[in-house]
Design a protein around this nucleic acid. Structure first.
Length: 154
DNA sequence: GCCAACGTTGGC
DNA sequence: GCCAACGTTGGC
């Protein structure tokens, strides 16, 4: 089983939004980066766990955990001209974009700030804290996952 | 709002 | 296939 980190701007979609979804489950649509897409298409499996990360906001950091509940499926937003993620080069017989479905697992009492993560020497090889990282879906090594989970207050 | 880093596009 | 131009991400 694999571990992941998924970024989202809370103004667009926050962990509270995920909690408010039916079955606390939602399709992670709108990914328009091939590396991120390929992680979902090829490497994610049902049961994998992922950190929910809030980016581009006041309290930047990891805010909770969710789990993968479906293999990658076609992202319908690519076909909708009114959707901000519309892709004119995608067609229903040749879809470009795929997404997995995620279910809420836990919301931490406190955000684990990016700044804190940067100060931990054991996390220096975690891609999230490295310079110029823009990927919105990242694999997380098990040792990093465990270390971060150990920081969460019960 | 700024800007560095990075991905994508498209002309050649 | 190269690479300049452009757009986007995301921390600060």
């Amino acid at each position: 089983m694999n571990y992941w980190l998924l970024k989202s701007e809370p103004d667009a979609f926050s962990i509270d939004d995920l909690m408010a979804c039916p079955n606390q489950t939602d399709l992670w649509d709108g990914i328009r980066n091939y590396q991120a897409r390929n992680f979902m298409m090829k490497d994610m499996s049902v049961g994998d766990l992922a950190f929910f990360y809030h980016s581009n906001c006041k309290a930047i950091g990891i805010v909770g955990v969710m789990k993968v509940v479906s293999e990658a499926e076609v992202d319908p937003t690519q076909f909708d001209p009114d959707n901000k993620y519309f892709d004119p080069k995608a067609s229903s017989d040749k879809p470009r974009w795929f997404a997995c479905r995620f279910q809420f697992v836990d919301k931490f009492d406190e955000v684990i700030p990016l700044q804190t993560l940067k100060e931990i020497p054991e996390l220096s090889d975690f891609r999230l804290v490295q310079k110029g990282n823009r990927l919105s879906i990242l694999p997380v090594e098990e040792k990093h996952w465990n270390l971060i989970m150990a920081m969460v207050k019960d």
